Simulated assay, not measured.
Amino acid sequence: MVDIKGNSTAFIIVDAQNFVLHENGFGAGWGAWKYAQEKNMVQRTVKAIEKARASNIPIIFVQMDLRPQILPAITQNLPDIDFWKPLREMDFSKITPEEGDFQGSIIDEFTPQPEDLIVTKYHTMSGFHNTDLDQIVRALQCDTLLFAGAVTNLCVESTVRGAFDRGYNCVVLSDCVASISEEAQNFAIDVIFPMLGQVCTSDELEIM
């Protein structure tokens, strides 16, 4: 079991957007959507969100966004690696505003409430890079951060590393994150996260 104090904790949910956690997301081919379905990650995270809300823990959604006005220039300069491959291959002139809104939206199951906070990051993995996430958490007087979202070994891990570097107590909910494969998931959960904080399932989390 992992015990945390609800009055000094925030729940950060990373990149829980349609582009990565919906079957019609342009990043569905990465595998996180399939993994999330197989492991019941979405439903477990819904319960974790409800648990946090019941203890008045602030919910912070970190979402990745793209600036459509400069996307052509950005995609031309992106490195030819797998993470950016879907963007490099997309013809943004054929994407309607409605489709763009769908891809960037938080999945329906996690629909943010009015009291929730949303932090937007542009073209980066870490939720702390060039955002006001650190200022928000400090203003909330939180020293402990819970983590959920996708992709476990990419944007979630980068954000956890950012939190660790800033001195926060980090707790990763192992059943509320989804990776591109079992191997990638297990390495992050078993090797990386224990060096940066604590790891537990949502059922193992005790809020005091």
Rank of each mutant, 00 (worst) to 15 (best):
W33C: 03
W33I: 00
K34A: 12
K34V: 02
K34Y: 07
Y35V: 05
Y35F: 10
Y35D: 06
A36V: 02
Q37C: 05
E38Y: 01
K39I: 05
K39Y: 10
N40T: 04
N40G: 14
M41K: 14
M41N: 13
M41W: 00
M41H: 11
V42R: 04
V42A: 02
V42P: 01
Q43P: 02
Q43D: 10
Q43K: 13
Q43V: 04
Q43N: 13
Q43R: 09
R44V: 07
T45S: 15
V46W: 09
K47F: 12
K47M: 12
K47D: 07
A48H: 02
A48M: 11
A48E: 03
A48Q: 05
A48R: 00
E50G: 03
E50M: 09
E50I: 07
E50Y: 09
K51Y: 05
K51L: 13
A52G: 06
A52I: 04
R53H: 12
R53M: 07
A54D: 12
A54E: 14
S55G: 06
S55N: 14
N56P: 03
I57R: 00
P58Y: 08
P58I: 10
I59Y: 05
I60N: 02
F61C: 01
V62C: 03
V62L: 06
V62R: 00
Q63W: 02
M64Q: 07
M64N: 09
M64Y: 02
D65P: 09
D65Y: 08
D65S: 13
L66E: 07
L66W: 15
R67F: 15
R67I: 09
P68G: 05
P68M: 06
Q69P: 00
Q69V: 05
I70A: 11
L71Y: 11
L71M: 14
P72E: 15
P72H: 12
P72L: 06
P72Y: 10
A73S: 11
I74V: 12
T75Q: 13
T75V: 15
Q76W: 01
Q76I: 04
Q76E: 14
N77M: 08
N77P: 02
N77Q: 10
N77Y: 04
L78Q: 11
L78T: 08
L78S: 13
P79Q: 06
P79F: 09
D80V: 10
D82L: 15
D82S: 15
